[in-house]
């Protein structure tokens, strides 16, 4: 059994984007997790959180912390991703001008999540939503 936390992510609300990832960072710090692992983890969570804010209507971040790993599932209700292989390519983006104004939308999010996680699984259904699972080992 791990420790479980759930955070709500509001689609379209950029002033709140990052609050869930920030809470996870505080928890991992309190648990004295290696700062390098914390950084990798929260960077990938933040990228995922920004994706939900940028593309979906609403979402959840479910975090489970075990002695040896952290497992995070980010699920959203939204338009879904028609072609995941394409979305994984650096530079491919469907972001709006508003998202670009916030400093994102360069088609780098998903590839950076992959880089900063030990395991990453993504699945999506058009007009339903997207599920992303990130696993990082703590040792």
């Amino acid at each position: 059994m791990g420790m479980k936390f759930t955070f709500v992510i509001e689609g379209g609300n950029f002033s709140k984007a990052g609050t869930a990832s920030s809470e996870v960072k505080k928890i991992l710090k309190q648990l004295n997790v290696d700062p390098k692992i914390i950084k990798r983890t929260v960077v990938s969570l933040y990228e995922a959180e920004v994706n939900v804010v940028a593309h979906a209507f609403e979402g959840n971040m479910n975090v489970e912390i075990f002695p040896d790993k952290i497992v995070v599932r980010i699920e959203d209700k939204g338009p879904g991703i028609p072609d995941i292989d394409m979305a994984m390519q650096i530079g491919f983006s469907t972001a709006t001008p508003e998202v670009r104004e916030m400093g994102f939308g360069a088609g780098m999010g998903l590839p950076n999540i992959k880089k900063n996680s030990d395991r990453m699984n993504i699945s999506s259904t058009i007009n339903v939503g997207t599920q992303l699972e990130i696993v990082n080992y703590l040792k």
């Binding site: 990052g18 990832s21 920030s22 960072k25 950084k39 960077v43 920004v50």
Partner: peptide, 12 residues
């Protein structure tokens, strides 16, 4: 904007 600060927070 706020995301500049958030990005820095996550990136140490």
């Amino acid at each position: 904007n706020l995301q500049t600060i958030r990005t820095s927070e996550m990136s140490d």
